[in-house]
Write a protein that binds this DNA or RNA. Structure first.
Lengths: 195, 195
DNA sequence: GTCTATAAGGGGATAGAC
DNA sequence: GTCTATCCCCTTATAGAC
């Protein structure tokens, strides 16, 4: 692998483990196994290297959300995507960035993160709208709202898992979400309105 | 206010804004308006000061969850607590800490965060169990799971809000959660099971 | 392309005067 | 109790040799 790729891979790993602010160029070079000259030859500095690394990470993570558009009924796809294995204690490689002030205050990095969430939420909204059309969710469901609720459950699951140092809270949060969707499904066509 | 309190208040504010790793003793002293000697007189160092500050923050934040035990039916209390105003783009003062490796790797600080979530989740579980007993939620609801789902929605709402630099995703996530609870409520006593 | 040397400033803490 | 002076190491980068 080229020095350049070694550097972006190392930066991606360190962004995940430590975040942007806490990762020094020295750390990246040591992990990549290249010298200082290499890094400043390929990149103007830490910032440009992080932009390249985070872009690659986002492509990877957002790619997985295409499963929301796979086979099965809309509700099945939603439940299947929610139930994908996620290592809670490691945190989300993208969502994690939002807690780093140096990322949020950096227009380039924030744009990458915001774009990732835009794409993912758009996919959620479409599958939810399809589920409503298919009669799998109540007709008064607001796709834009439920999309954010479900995305938040995944992001929040990571937070709970890290707070407790355990995988279980993440899995429990997802199971609770699936149960709520099942209940919402069960409420369709009963004619009962919320009190 | 005493120098000691000035210091813990300043540290609490900086933990919220920047996190633990990114906050230097120098920052804290400048914000508190006291000299270096004062800080090292009252505290052994950055770590002990952070423990004191974070403990105070947790007492405050966890105190708000007592609203889950206030007046109204269990489901009403759940929806009311979910709908409390929260400044999404500022992030959660406690949940934020979980993304800071220096916090998660520090047994003292992690214990404070874990304890906060334990208390909060316990309150969620009790009000959920009460809602099930009252027939406001399906009988097969698992309180431990739904508690984590709802806590995750709030934590994830902060993540979404920061990712987009806007309050709206947080509020949308909560409205979607309330809608799901209403649908789950509507599904009770219909006899319909998830397909 | 990749290396080492070096610089200017910050992080975290100690020493000791007042 | 609070202050200033000082220390050592790390961070981010530039310079220039190879």
């Amino acid at each position: 692998m080229s020095s350049r790729d070694q550097l972006t891979d190392a930066m991606a790993a360190l962004l995940w483990e430590r975040g942007y602010a806490a990762t020094s160029p020295r750390d990246v070079m040591a992990r990549a196994g290249v010298g200082q000259g290499s890094m400043y030859h390929h990149f103007s500095g830490k910032h440009e290297l992080a932009v390249a690394a985070l872009s690659a990470v986002v492509d990877d993570v957002v790619g997985a959300t295409s499963q929301l558009e796979g086979e099965g009924s809309p509700l099945e796809r939603m439940k299947r995507y929610l139930s994908l294995p996620r290592q809670g204690t490691l945190g989300c490689r993208v969502g994690r960035m939002t807690q780093d002030p140096q990322v949020v205050e950096d227009a380039d990095l924030l744009a990458i993160v915001a774009g990732a969430f835009d794409t993912m939420l758009g996919r959620w909204e479409r599958v939810i709208a399809a589920a409503v059309d298919a009669g799998e969710l109540p007709a008064d469901t607001v796709p834009a709202e439920l999309a954010r609720t479900l995305a938040a459950i995944i992001q929040g699951g990571y937070v709970l898992a890290r707070a407790q140092g355990a995988q279980e809270p993440m899995d429990a949060a997802v199971r609770g979400a699936v149960a709520l969707l099942d209940a919402a499904h069960a409420s369709v066509r009963t004619g009962r309105r919320p009190i």
